[in-house]
């Protein structure tokens, strides 16, 4: 496929990105299996063309938007973001994407909309772990508060390192919310719904005492089963211990997003 023309963004970090190999062979995409290497091994059969996104709920122009139409919502930018997984590892990833707000504006958000719900493709014939045995209630769903969704840091990504997004990373279209744990950044999106009530999210449904709706990166609020104070940057090889580094509040994006949570008890709203 053709390389994507994208302009650099002032929101990019100047930290060195992880290699394409690292980013594409170490994935949590449980639709394709439990292990980090499973998505790379199993996602190849996923059909991503044709693709369309159904936008509905409290919007002026609901409907099924073909992918190329979605991608025309705004010019593509390169956003080099820190990515922090709830499992306490991290990467730096050069996404190609555009602000989610541009797409939502095109659909026309109604004043009553307070949340945005997202849904991943459900296609068990091509997604081998979408079975009842997996213990997960498919399809994978996620959600954001409307102000989080409209924030300029929040993007829909369709590319990586200048090329179209590999399937194991959530092709053809995924969310990236860099100040939240990675599981919020839902992959292979087929449906976006504007709602008044907070939408259910897959991890909150699975383990509500461990995964909250917000899931903001926060070194002071530990996961009940492990500390979030530090993280291992993937790519250090065997000596990754040298790469264990302190986790930053809001994954280092506090200057941009802390105001969204002013006055909120982040221990309660984890």
């Amino acid at each position: 496929a053709a390389r994507i023309a994208a302009t650099p963004s002032p929101y990019s970090t100047d930290a060195a990105p992880n290699t394409l190999e690292e980013i594409t062979s170490y994935n949590n995409f449980y639709e394709f299996g439990w292990n980090k290497g499973d998505p790379k091994a199993n996602a190849g059969r996923l059909t991503i063309d044709p693709w369309s996104v159904e936008i509905g709920g409290l919007v002026e122009r609901p409907g099924s938007y073909p992918l190329d139409d979605v991608l025309r919502a705004a010019p593509a930018e390169e956003r080099i973001y820190r990515f922090r997984c709830v499992e306490a590892w991290s990467m730096v990833i050069p996404w190609i994407g555009f602000p989610l707000s541009a797409l939502l504006d095109r659909a026309g958000v109604q004043p009553g909309a307070k949340y945005v719900a997202f849904q991943t493709l459900y296609r068990p014939a091509e997604m081998n772990n979408q079975t009842a045995l997996s213990g997960i209630d498919w399809p994978y769903v996620e959600g954001l508060r409307i102000d989080e969704a409209m924030h300029p840091l929040t993007i829909l990504a369709s590319g990586l390192y200048g090329d179209p997004l590999p399937r194991q990373n959530g092709a053809p279209l995924r969310l990236v919310v860099p100040w939240k744990y990675g599981f919020k950044s839902i992959k292979s999106i087929v449906k976006i719904t504007l709602t008044e009530a907070p939408p259910p999210t897959t991890w909150q449904r699975l383990q509500p005492q461990e995964y909250g709706f917000y899931a903001n990166v926060n070194p002071q609020v530990d996961h009940p089963r492990w500390s979030q104070a530090t993280e291992r940057r993937i790519g250090g090889g065997l000596f990754a211990f040298a790469n264990r580094q302190p986790t930053q509040m809001f994954n280092g994006y506090g200057e941009e997003v802390a105001a969204l949570y002013a006055g909120m008890d982040l221990r309660k709203f984890y």
Partner: peptide, 21 residues
């Protein structure tokens, strides 16, 4: 202890007493 926690003894010990698994 060595490769994963990077011998951050305080965090390793803290994790140990707080995390049932």
């Amino acid at each position: 202890l060595v490769l994963d926690m990077g011998m951050l003894w305080a965090q390793a010990l803290g994790d140990l007493v707080r995390r049932p698994y």
